[in-house]
Design a protein around this nucleic acid. Sequence first.
RNA 1: GCGGGAGUAGCUCAGUGGAUAGAGCAGCGGUUUUCUAAACCGUUGGUCGGGAGUUCGAAUCUCCCCUCCCGUACCA
Length: 603
Amino acid sequence: MTKLATNISLVEHLFMDIWFNIPKELSEVILQAAAEIPYFDKSFNPDIRTTDPRFGDFQANGVLSWGKNVGQNPRQVAQKLMETVEQLGILDPTLVGYEIAGPGFINFQLTTKFLLSWLKRYRKEDDLKTAAGDIYRGKRIVVDFSSPNSSKQMHVGHIRSIVIGEAICRLLTFCGAYVIRDNHIGDWGTQYGILMMAIKRFDYNLKAPHKNPLNDFETLYREGNALVEKDQKVGEKAREELVKLQNGDLDSLSLWKEINKISLQALQEIYDLLDIHFDETLGESYYRDQLNRVYQELIETGIAEESQGALVVFHREHSRYKTQPFIIRKSDGASLYSTTDLATILYRHEHFQADEINYVVDSRQSDHFEQLFLTVRKWFFAKGIPLPKLKHISFGTILGEDRKAIKTRSGEQIKLKDLLNEAVHRAFNIVCKKKNPDLTNEEYKDISHVVGIGAVRYADLMQNRTSDYVFSWDKLLSFEGNTAPYLLYAVARIYSIFRRAKLQPGSNENNASEFETETEIALAQKLIQFVTVLEQTVNDLRPHFLCTYLYELSGLFSAFYNADKVLISNQKIRSRRLLLCARTLTVLETGLHLLGLNTLAKM
RNA sequence: GCGGGAGUAGCUCAGUGGAUAGAGCAGCGGUUUUCUAAACCGUUGGUCGGGAGUUCGAAUCUCCCCUCCCGUACCA
């Protein structure tokens, strides 16, 4: 072993030891020094974060507040700290430089030697996969997303749950979690009462061939609902239909099955377009035999009570939910989504051993989830069941140009299928107009699909998920700004360089010299920040952090591409620039894949 | 009424209690015998809704007020 070690060159040794998670390591260094200084104690947090490039790569802000606490000049505290670091010899000045600035910031600047070593050491997607550390290592996480109502078509609003949900699944998997994608279809609720009433009343023949049955269902539902609102007797009839179904009436069940079959086929078309694959599609109906246990246990534990004929949960300790009930059984005896949601959590605990359940659902349902989570906490506590971590990953509404929830000109919902097809179609027109002459018709088709679908997904993910956002075709398909086409174009150009050089990305890097130009250094600095950004993205499950980073990275790559020609005769320079291209490609593709986008070698 | 979210450049949006608040679009001005110009570079543009407070330091935290959106007992 010793002999082997001595045979490893100094340089190789350095590559093996190069820090991966830099802010974490810098933090360690500072804490080590702080341990030697009397006026620091364990509560000291160096507070390392990325900084404005003109100050360096990372800054430590912790001494500012600490100096104040212990009655010392923060600048002198920083000074003392860094002197100690030097005495201990725990920061290699050939790798990391530092400077004390302003009132007591410690700015760290990675040397070009460090940057090159880092990029030589962490080359591929797998190397980056350890990035988010052990945050979710070994955890079993159910992600409940998409979860549309059956018997209705998906419209634009449904895309957020799908796209954000899928991105979150990929991020969690990347961080070591075992993810269960569960599509919790709404197939057991009140809408069935109305729909089935309408089918019978309007004599709609399910067995006969129909051009667009889901459209018919929607019309039937709409007209049925209008009747319900007008006529109490019709409303009663609809509620009866639901109760009959929920009580297992055979005719009702077979009608329900037929509706569901047709619905699921239509939903599948969308999932195919978006390349979404669920591990489970357990709708509300799946839990219908488990609802009695919910009623029973919640009554027996005194959590639920009768109110106005319904079975409800009040949370006395809560300012609002002490009077705003969580209804788990309607006065007519029917269950609702609160009931099935309760049963579902129990199932996910017992069957999947879920450590965590994430619900990717519209923020308008936050009251429901707050009440649901409060109820489960009490229920599981009373029964001695370990409580999984429950999270509502909420998101805002997609708005039209008029800043109201997006609709067609005539005021109808925009069908998701139409939107996706239009995206591909528009992408096709753009790609064709620009005409890359080397491409075949087949390639145009592929590119249109990847760009069109990717653009819609990216436009959604690049927004802070908790905010509403304004939908704009021009913006999401533009090659300028924070868009999928811009990022995909950057990827395609990198591939093009390697094609031109007749090389595989990642090869011919051995002669790489240290970075010299401003654009090279800026790009290298950005690349190493991937780790930090990924951590932030995963901590908050906010994909837009990653999007912003990828966009900035692409911008720096474009600047580099424009300023520094890669395929030149000087082998040392060429080699290091090829390395930058290959690593940018790795990070961009890793990031885009995490977001659920495909990438292209040509466009 | 209560609760949640939002209010940052003309428009669409970023912004971890830190340094001179940033992008993109739009506007103005440049760059192509050079690896995909679908690109790049420069420039104009701000009472961070208003007011008070906490802090060495506030777009960010606390309180009050204004405007808009959403939710608020048998839909999901």
